[in-house]
């Protein structure tokens, strides 16, 4: 766990993205408030037992589901904290959307706990999202980071569930959650666009646009879990078909390994 590395990643904005931006003042104000993330570094963040359990290995599908459960606990709590803070999310459509997303994350927790039964890991003591709720822009940047991470995390585990024999049709369930996370990510990205961040509903190259950069980077090993900028699919460089790297990267989402995902999510978990 390299917290300082993650924090420095948080600050990065791709130069090519900046070149596209006109409403720079919005971006810079977002970044300025995100600078408060540095406060996180000063705080002793204890990495909880849930984190260790999640890293302990994935011998069977229950381990995979407990890893998923940890991410869903985290997402659920993130939205609960955001909705509980008066004035953070504008009333009307934005609040309705976040309430719906929160409801889905709660449903995922319920579903995964039900599937795991007695093997379900307990909810961590709490989650500390640092400066995530300081501003609406911060909240959206974190929300995008978590949703895009969720998409990559479930995708990264599909093969493992399959190889575990797909007991109880868990693969289908995992993918049914995976696509819901992608719907959330798409909508949150549009909410950020409406709030002045120039980006699409899908991921261009590995551009974070002020969200957590590691979410879009390569995993371990990078050959299996390339960054979102990957253009090699099925052994073919699809840019050779006459498409730009931006177009190819947007058309495909990449999976991410558990260690990298927990490295991104871990700092938020309190023991």
């Amino acid at each position: 766990m390299n917290l300082f590395h993650i924090l420095s990643e948080l600050e990065k904005v791709e130069p090519e993205t900046m070149a596209k931006l006109n409403s720079r003042r919005d971006i810079f104000s977002t970044l300025a408030s995100m600078g408060k993330k540095a406060a996180l570094a000063a705080a002793p963040i204890a990495i909880g037992s849930a984190f260790n359990k999640a890293l302990a290995g994935t011998k069977d599908v229950f381990d995979v589901f407990n890893y998923a459960l940890l991410l869903e606990y985290l997402e659920e709590d993130f939205y609960a904290q955001a909705l509980a803070k008066a004035g953070l999310i504008p009333t009307g459509a934005p609040t309705s959307a976040i309430q719906l997303i929160k409801k889905h994350e709660t449903a995922h927790v319920t579903l995964l706990k039900g599937a795991l039964g007695a093997k379900a890991n307990p909810r961590p003591k709490g989650f500390d999202f640092g400066p995530a709720f300081d501003t609406y822009a911060n909240f959206l940047a974190y929300a995008q980071s978590l949703e895009d991470t969720g998409v990559r995390a479930y995708k990264g585990k599909a093969g493992e569930i399959k190889e575990a024999g797909n007991p109880n049709n868990y693969l289908t369930v995992a993918l049914q959650i995976h696509s819901v996370e992608a719907r959330h990510a798409s909508h949150i990205r549009a909410m950020r666009r409406a709030n002045g961040v120039m980006q699409a509903n899908w991921i261009t190259n590995a551009e974070a646009n002020g969200a957590v950069a590691a979410v879009y980077g390569a995993g371990k090993p990078a050959t299996t879990f390339p960054s979102e900028a990957n253009v090699m699919q099925a052994g073919v460089d699809l840019t050779t078909l006459g498409y730009t790297k931006e177009q190819v990267s947007e058309a495909f989402d990449e999976g991410l390994d558990q260690e990298t995902v927990v490295g991104i999510a871990g700092p938020f978990i309190m023991s």
Partner: peptide, 27 residues
Amino acid sequence: AAKLITTSLYLTALAKISSVEARHAAL
């Protein structure tokens, strides 16, 4: 369709597409 795929490589191949379709659907 995912559970009907037997090779993990191809399963991942489809999942790389399916979340983009979900992003499209949401938009």
